[in-house]
Design a protein around this nucleic acid. Structure first.
Length: 572
RNA sequence: GGGCUCGUGGCUUAGCCAGGAUAUAGCGCUGGGCUUCUAACCCAGACGCCGGGGGUUCAAAUCCCUUCGGGCCCGCCA
């Protein structure tokens, strides 16, 4: 709740506005054009804007503004200077001291924002027709990291998995379970995938079977008990396996919501009636379609089949109508294949006066041989990735820490392996499509999660040693003003930036900014570690201050890792 | 065919929406650093017509047009 960089920026804003007013000019807050830069802690390009507004020279304006600047006592802003047309703000000693104190005071709460309203976030929601594959977990990791960022930003976040327990693909699964034997010696989701793949091959060979699927679909829609039971059985087998995978990935959902519940409750029927009431619907070859041409969609949207059954879209409309009543903001994390349909969904919701969701789209992960498909059995399961990556991590731990127990190595390998997977996926912007590559996935040499985790472990190790050698205690009173080395100041400034990163991530729904930040924070800590002796510091007060700084780094690294959903080992 | 999106050193990638100070970082490569708090580390160096071509602007990786290449979508599937 203690703002540092955000407060620094707020103070810089007010100081700059006053100075601009002082020289008789005026500008909007949004035209102060602040940016972080290597030249200053915060730089403003506003002189460019003022120059064009008032037809004056930007350099001269910057100089005049700077000379009119008045910095209040105990401000986070220390010094302001003009560099050509740029106005550079430098943080004060007070800001640095306050940062150290804030981290020590707030500990795991450091970086948290003030309490905000409720968000309902849906992610993963993969069809229960097989295990999660490496494409699905991009959804899970983006979604889970966003949820963690939003929580730290202060939102009350509920995370849901929308279970498709009655679509056509589940009818195929159910049909497949009758026809083929489930191999339950395997993980249940994998067993489901096997019969699902076989069934699809059968359906491709013999199109007559399609009628059987249609019949099953009609039965479930009319509430046939044995058909519903058969669906439920298949779905729960798949979902229990998926839950296991998500648990290992450190991804948690607050609730699993069944699609069928909206049919049973009559919500699907009601939402169709609401859409009809807008006068946008018509019948096209027996099917009920919605005209969304005024929203820019050329083609109509089908919301009811000619046989009267509902579609995924129809049930999704009902789901979103329900969600809109549960929270202030609705966020869905969806694959790029949903771009069009989610636009149509939003338009339809808008037409019936229901709050629209914010959609976060991520692009596909494909294989070198082409796109992944559960139906064709062409995918790499998340389980296989986790197994191989943790196995590879185990070899690393074994090589680096041969003296430790097998239990320890196994634990570290799990933290490092899963962390590496999460980091590798979250560090890339969601809008980039990627090709899965085993060599890269198993590479621990690059600066990824293990690098950040190692920095955390290193901080822990220094503090452990300090307890033994100099009887250090975390409660020791310290004087942060002794932290004057470049690497110390850089590290403090980087820690102070945490609230800003959480704010940006939450505002723009971009989890990758946090991934980059965590790596930069680790960089700053490692540089400090390399250049500045801590335990060996000669002056006792300097040593105490540096130990406190190590403790701060440990806390902010741990908080960053926690927000990324990555374990923070104390030793590795 | 139409729509959306991505294209930044050999490879991966930040910055683009809100245009401005030498274009970010990693891997790989070259060279250096462990009798000192964990070397999964640190330091230095080479490598870029920011896909191509036009335009707008005092200023373009960023905005506009066009073109090429990759991905996704255009189902009474989800």
């Amino acid at each position: 709740m203690i703002s540092l960089f955000l407060e620094f920026k707020a103070q810089a804003t007010s100081i700059l506005k006053d100075a601009i007013q002082e020289i008789g000019l005026e500008i909007e807050d949004s035209e102060l054009y602040f940016e972080t830069s290597s030249h200053a802690d915060l730089a403003s390009r506003t002189a460019f804007k003022l120059a064009s507004l008032y037809k004056q020279n930007p350099k001269e304006l910057a100089t005049r503004i700077v000379s009119a600047i008045k910095i209040p006592d105990s401000s986070y802003v220390g010094e302001v200077s003009a560099s050509g047309p740029y106005i550079n703000f430098h943080a004060s000693r007070h800001y640095l001291n306050r940062t150290v104190a804030a981290v020590l005071e707030e500990k795991e709460k450091f970086g948290c924002g003030a309490p905000k309203n409720k968000i309902l976030l849906e992610h993963t929601s993969a069809n229960p027709n097989g295990p999660l594959h490496v494409g699905h977990i991009r959804n899970s990791i983006i979604g889970d990291t966003l949820a963690r960022i939003l929580r730290r930003a202060g939102y009350d976040v509920e995370v849901q998995y929308y279970v498709n327990d009655m679509g056509r693909q589940i009818a195929v699964v159910s049909w497949a379970c009758e026809r083929f034997e489930l191999d339950l010696s395997k993980k249940s989701d994998s067993a489901i995938a096997n019969v699902y793949i076989k069934a699809n091959a059968e359906l491709d060979k013999n199109p007559d079977y399609v009628k059987e699927i249609d019949a099953i679909m009609e039965k479930v829609e009319t509430g046939d008990v044995s058909t519903i039971d058969s669906f439920d059985k298949a779905v729960s087998l798949a979902i229990s396996g998926i839950k296991e995978t998500l648990l290992r990935l450190n991804v948690a959902h607050d609730s699993f919501v069944n699609e069928s519940s909206f049919l049973k409750s009559g919500a699907v029927h009601n939402v169709v009636e609401k859409v009809k009431a807008t006068g946008r619907t018509k019948t096209d070859k027996g099917a009920l379609v919605v005209d969304l041409s005024d929203y820019g969609f050329e083609k109509t949207l089908v919301i009811q089949r000619s046989n009267g059954t509902s579609l995924y879209t129809t049930r999704d409309l009902a789901y979103h109508e329900w969600k809109a009543g549960q929270a202030d903001r609705i966020i869905d994390v969806l694959g790029a294949d949903h771009k069009l349909i989610s636009g149509q969904l939003k338009a339809t919701l808008n037409a019936i006066g229901v709050k629209e969701p914010e959609i976060v789209i991520f692009e596909f992960v494909s294989l070198p041989e082409g796109s992944m498909s559960t139906r064709r059995g062409q995918f790499i399961s998340a389980d296989e990735l986790f197994d191989r990556v943790t196995e590879s991590a185990l070899e690393q731990v074994d090589a680096r820490r041969p003296e430790t127990s097998y239990e320890f190595k196994k634990q570290v390998a799990e933290m490092v392996g899963i962390g590496a997977v999460r980091y590798d996926i979250v560090r890339v912007s969601p809008e980039k499509s990627t090709v899965f590559n085993w060599k890269e996935a198993l590479d621990f040499e690059k600066q990824g999660a293990p690098y950040i985790q190692y920095s955390h472990a290193r901080a822990c190790s220094i503090l452990e040693k300090a307890k033994e050698e100099v009887a250090w205690e975390s409660s020791t009173e310290i004087e942060p003003s002794f932290l004057v080395e470049d690497t110390e100041i850089d590290l403090i400034k980087k820690m102070a930036m945490f609230d800003n990163i959480i704010d940006i991530g939450a505002r723009e729904l971009k989890p990758h900014v946090l991934a980059i930040y965590a790596r930069e924070l680790a960089d700053a800590f490692n540089q400090f570690y390399r250049f500045v002796p801590v335990i060996a510091a000669e002056d006792e007060k300097v040593r105490a201050a540096r130990l406190a700084l190590v403790d701060c780094a440990r806390i902010v690294l741990a908080n960053s890792l926690d927000t990324l959903g990555i374990a923070a080992p104390e030793s590795m």
